[in-house]
């Protein structure tokens, strides 16, 4: 108390205050050097945050063992004409259907103009084997499992939100945007197939 305000900073032990925040004791020093340090520190911190955030996000993607369960084999001789077998592939149902000639006829005869997601029946089965239809059994709307034999088109009907699929698994009515997906699959022999 008693000292005039403002004066003492230039004297004695207070001198150390000049070298901290704000004051620049040397007017010839380059101010951009300090800016550089600020920017470099902020950029380094931002890079570190992004670098550690990515592992924390990516850990939620499918793990190595999940990705390894990619393909299965199936014996077709178990499926008689007009029958459908549901097997599990990558956690999802897979429809393996042995179609009757009437169903195939119905699917082939459908004009493209009636389809929401136009695709010929031929493009959905292997050449020369129109009776075998292999489909991923999840509705393209929100992923429920459609049941065979329901709906207005003789194919599948999804109970969740009322999507109708025809005998080729193509979407005909209801909220689903796409046909039932055909996975990658092929014949290993006349009665054996490999999916995935």
């Amino acid at each position: 108390m008693g000292k005039p305000p403002g004066g003492p900073l230039s004297k004695g032990s207070f001198k150390v205050a000049d070298t901290v925040v704000g004051a620049n004791p040397d007017p010839h020093a380059d101010p951009s050097r300090r800016d550089f340090i600020h920017i470099a520190a902020a950029a380094g911190a931002a890079g570190a945050v992004v670098g550690i955030a990515w592992p924390l996000i990516d850990q939620m993607n499918p793990a190595g063992d999940t990705l390894a369960l990619a393909s299965i084999e199936f014996d077709l001789s178990k499926v008689v004409e007009g029958q459908q077998v549901v097997i599990k592939w990558r956690g999802k149902p897979l429809f393996v259907r042995n179609r009757t000639p009437a169903e195939i006829q119905k699917a082939v005869a459908t004009p493209m103009s009636e389809l929401r997601d136009p695709q010929t029946d031929e493009a959905r089965h292997k050449p020369g084997k129109p009776e075998w239809l292999v489909l991923i059994g999840t509705c393209t709307h929100l992923g429920c499992v459609p049941t065979f034999g329901g709906g207005d088109y003789g194919g599948w009907f999804c109970p969740c939100h009322g999507s109708h699929y025809d005998t080729s698994g193509r979407i005909r009515k209801g909220p689903a945007p796409k046909n039932l997906a055909v996975p990658d699959w092929d014949f290993l022999s006349d009665t054996k197939i490999k999916v995935g």
């Binding site: 996000i57 939620m60 499918p62 793990a63 999940t66 990558r90 956690g91 999802k92 992923g143």
Partner: peptide, 23 residues
Amino acid sequence: GALPIIGPPITTWLWGGFAVDNA
């Protein structure tokens, strides 16, 4: 999954697999 382009990768990321499962 209804979102265009980013939808399917987001669903796979949420699931941690190809379907709703143990992950």
